[in-house]
Design a protein around this nucleic acid. Structure first.
Lengths: 291, 291
DNA sequence: TTCAGAATGTAGCATTATTTTCAGAGCAAA
DNA sequence: TTTGCTCTGAAAATAATGCTACATTCTGAA
């Protein structure tokens, strides 16, 4: 079944993707992005959209097992006809060829529900306020996670570290926490993750930090962590999933939106820092060669 | 509102139908019959299907208010595009009370697009095969991430560690990697994350691991990492976001779905392990009290 | 760094599609 | 039947599309 010359255009692209070159991949993405309409215009139009040359498109058509671009177009039209004539069918399931009951589809359903519900009740003023806090270069930012949410904390830390100075990741081992609290002062920000099962230690840390005058930004689930009473700002994400575990996808989503917003807020500095970082990486690479 | 030059192609045809000539009516019927696909081929093909001449088709396009046949085709494609993308429920906006342009809404749009497109081209056989690999207790599992994707690796590791034995998280420092490769044997599994910018070291690790007989499961982006050539199974996630960074949300999604599937596969063992884990946590807590 | 080989784009050409021109067919009215 | 009109399609002219050959650029290995 792995023959080149069978299946829909999209399938063939996916199947051959590994063997495609840089320009061809760029083209593939454009074709799949607005499938199949983007492939129904002229070869020139498609080439321009994908920012590749027309011959590249023609070569790709060959690679996919068609005699040429027009032949590929005919295939697209045939597919489209079949799709349109079959009743609703369309977006019943997310993953193609998978039954609705496949874990991927059930997960997709759950996650988009979570996302919708979370956004519905998310307080925009809170969001913007947190962006301001995190953008303020005079504040120290501390990030801490729990047993599972540690990865989220880590993710936020990695990105914030690029964007700005004075960001600290507090390690998961709660023995060391007092040392960090010791350094917190009025106006500092503690970003904490506390998803069920809520961790007693996190609660304590929040308490101590706010007593030191730090502001608490709390990420929690729809039931709300007990630490919430100390929080100046909080995000309650829905985390339900068809699994024994909770889903962190929505949390990740909010994090990324936050990061993007902070980044925009301080774009000048961020850009400079990113540039410098690139250079430093290059030098590291060079350094390695001589080791 | 009865102007010729407005509305969809179908609407215009209906509106003008009475004024159309014999040959033009024959043509109209063909066009409406298999709308809009029949109009997307060449003018000659359409003419032949309708058993009229090509000039008739061109004249008709003019009558409908278009500059020529190609212009009519463009209109058809635009309509089609709108039709195909709208069933996916154009959410007016995700976050209540926020303008569409708020970063949260733009992000939500991008992420759901990413999710949809990723699932569309995701290979289910690959997915199921990876679930089998990760469920097989006789294999050692190694997990490794890059500079950013490290958090993803960490997240997977944390969960897999609960579910099963013999899971190792390879640290980000590539100096130590050979030590890990040394231990890999036939049938072991290396789960690697390589999102752009692709890291040369990761590529090398993949190479060495597969030479040792390990199977490579690779998470990458839509452009595909160079390490993919060594991969037995791969997931290509779309990572575009309205930000200077890429979005890891879809990767996280796939991870969670994988984890849920593996968990289901070996539910008996997982349940026992989770129960034991709970008890261990309780004892840790107790232990603390006396410290 | 240098070099070979692959990948990509440019330019021109062959092909195909579209439009225009024009002659003939059909039809209604005188 | 004739006349004049519109409609229609054949064929030529024009425009565009898509393909091939070749030059340039890029990439990766030595």
């Amino acid at each position: 079944m792995s023959e080149t010359s069978s299946g829909t255009v999209a399938e063939r692209i996916s199947r051959l993707f590994e063997t495609l070159t840089h320009a061809e991949r760029k083209l593939s993405n454009v074709m799949l992005e607005n499938y199949p309409v983007s492939g129904l215009g002229t070869i020139t139009a498609l080439a321009e959209t994908a920012e590749v040359s027309a011959p590249t498109v023609a070569r790709m058509a060959r690679k996919l097992g068609y005699g040429g671009f027009p032949e590929l177009q005919t295939a697209l039209r045939t597919e489209l006809e079949a799709t349109l004539s079959s009743p609703i069918a369309k977006h019943d399931s997310w993953a193609a060829n998978a039954p609705d009951t496949h874990i991927l589809n059930r997960f997709a359903e759950a996650v988009t529900d979570n996302l919708r519900q979370t956004l519905q009740q998310l307080d925009l003023e809170d969001f913007d306020a947190v962006v301001d806090l995190l953008s303020d270069p005079s504040r120290n930012i501390y990030v801490v996670g729990g047993r599972i949410s540690r990865s989220m904390a880590d993710y936020l830390f990695t990105h914030m570290q690029v964007i700005r100075d004075r960001v600290t990741l507090i390690p998961p081992n709660s023995n060391t926490w007092p040392h960090y609290v010791l350094n917190m002062t009025e106006g500092d920000v503690l970003v904490a993750f506390d998803i069920r099962r809520y961790e007693h230690d996190t609660h304590r840390l929040a308490e101590m930090a706010t007593e030191q005058g730090a502001q608490l930004v709390l990420f929690t689930d729809q039931w709300g962590s007990p630490a919430a009473r100390h929080a100046s700002h909080g995000f309650r994400a829905r985390i339900e999933a068809p699994s024994a575990w909770d889903s962190s996808v929505v949390i990740m989503f909010i994090l990324e939106a936050l990061i993007a917003a902070v980044e925009t807020e301080r774009w000048e500095e961020t850009r400079d820092r990113m540039k410098t970082l690139e250079q430093l990486f290059d030098r590291t690479k060079l350094f390695r060669k001589f080791t």
